[in-house]
Simulated scan of single mutants.
Amino acid sequence: MKHVLITVCLLSIASFAFSQTIKKVKVTEVEEYIKNSDHPIVLNCWATWCAPCIEEIPYFMEAIKKYGEQKVELLLVSCDFASSYPNKIIDLIKKKHFEATFFWLNETNADYFCPKIDPKWDGTLPSTLYVDPKTGYRKFFGRPMTDRQIDLEVGRLVGLKK
């Protein structure tokens, strides 16, 4: 009985620790995170119910690894409904083995939060912002991207491709 209790406690702690990796944020916190970054960021807005989103995330992970020496960070910002936070999001992240910094955008007014990510964003998912606060580089895509497009844009972000 003692071993069962210890196992349950350890599993609970592990589950709790993992759920803490998806930070609940307001859009102003995302803005501050970018502003205070000392490295390039690929910010991808996605949702668990968005098939094109799920399809392109591995391409981002691959490009980030390719340009690892440039310290590029993949920031996946979930735009899922509140009912999906955190369990449904965690389940998908685990199932797909996604690796990134994870935020859940705790906002409901797209007219407010979309332009704060980028003035051209109309709320379409997936959408991606390539940004480097140190160099001033900033490029936004309000559509799904192919593996080649992602690789090219990450290369541009870090200044290795034109």
Score class of each variant (00 low, 15 high):
155 G>I: 05
31 E>Q: 13
46 W>A: 07
8 V>F: 12
155 G>T: 01
132 D>R: 01
80 D>Q: 12
19 S>P: 09
92 L>W: 07
138 R>A: 15
161 K>L: 14
141 F>S: 12
134 K>M: 08
55 E>V: 11
117 I>L: 01
35 K>Y: 04
85 Y>F: 13
42 V>R: 03
38 D>C: 04
99 E>Q: 14
122 D>N: 15
109 N>F: 13
84 S>K: 10
12 S>D: 13
104 W>C: 13
55 E>W: 08
125 L>I: 01
136 G>H: 08
33 Y>A: 02
62 E>S: 06
24 K>H: 10
48 T>L: 08
162 K>H: 00
139 K>I: 07
85 Y>H: 09
43 L>G: 07
30 V>K: 04
43 L>P: 12
129 L>V: 11
9 C>M: 13
145 M>L: 15
114 C>Y: 00
23 K>A: 09
113 F>G: 02
161 K>A: 14
106 N>Q: 10
115 P>M: 09
141 F>T: 13
123 G>M: 00
49 W>P: 13
97 H>V: 11
115 P>W: 01
101 T>K: 05
101 T>G: 03
159 G>F: 06
134 K>T: 13
155 G>D: 03
53 C>Q: 02
135 T>G: 02
9 C>H: 01
62 E>K: 03
47 A>N: 06
112 Y>G: 04
62 E>I: 03
12 S>G: 15
